[in-house]
Design a binder for these strands. Structure first.
Length: 199
DNA sequence: CGCCTTTGACCCGCGC
DNA sequence: GCGCGGGTCAAAGGCG
């Protein structure tokens, strides 16, 4: 399914600044929306912010329902009236530090989706590694890591308490490997097509 | 049995 | 220093 990129229609744009180079260089499937203004500031700048603008029709995702809070079932994320949203945030956290390593924050980008379900299935396999309560939010935030060997991409998902129909997904890092969906069967594909051709 | 969640503890940066 | 908030670890358990 190399057309995973369709998940993010061309209309959605991203502005991100980061300290991570090696961005626009090789294309990485699965992150089509990185338009390569890489390394705005050199390493050492811990401040980066990300904006995501999506269009009204951005609730374009396959989604996993969580009728049980574990396994993945298929379901179409809503189709809603999600208005265009813009997000910007600061992340001034040095996360990547092993031992005397520099504190570089990978670029992060977020988008929000109106959806009934929390987990948007973007085609990668994720393992949840944490969940935390968020201040001023009645919903927790979940932390996921890409399970692909050597892939360090993370994402976090949270639902707005202000508008509980909205789910914010924040990606951190870039996949450098193909999509690793165990079973991409017809049903999945059909679901996608369904979503991508709303007219 | 392998893969995944759950969940409390831990860690770290920051403001007071 | 201390507490808080956000992010991560890892043990334990669940499920197919």
């Amino acid at each position: 399914m190399e057309n995973y990129q369709l998940l993010f229609p061309c209309s959605s744009t991203i502005a991100e600044s980061s300290s991570s180079p090696s961005f626009s260089s090789h294309n990485n499937m699965g992150t089509p929306f990185i338009n390569g203004n890489s390394s705005l500031h050199g390493v050492g700048n811990e401040m980066n912010e990300f904006h995501v603008r999506t269009t009204p029709s951005d609730d374009i995702h396959r989604a996993v329902s969580h009728d049980r809070h574990h396994h993945h079932h298929l379901g179409i994320a809503n189709s809603g009236d999600g208005p265009a949203e813009m997000m910007s945030e600061q992340a001034a956290k040095p996360s990547e530090k092993k031992k005397g390593e520099k504190k570089i924050r990978k670029p992060r980008f977020a988008f929000q989706t109106r959806s009934q379900v929390d987990i948007l299935d973007d085609g990668y396999r994720w393992r949840k590694y944490g969940q935390k309560a968020v201040k001023n939010n009645k919903f927790p935030r979940s932390y996921y890591r890409c399970t692909h060997q050597g892939c360090n991409v993370k994402k976090q998902v949270q639902r707005l308490s202000k508008d509980e129909g909205t789910v914010v997904t924040t990606y951190e890092g870039v996949h450098s490997h193909p999509i690793d969906k165990p079973s991409d069967n017809f049903e999945h594909i059909l679901n996608q097509m369904h979503i991508y051709t709303p007219f």
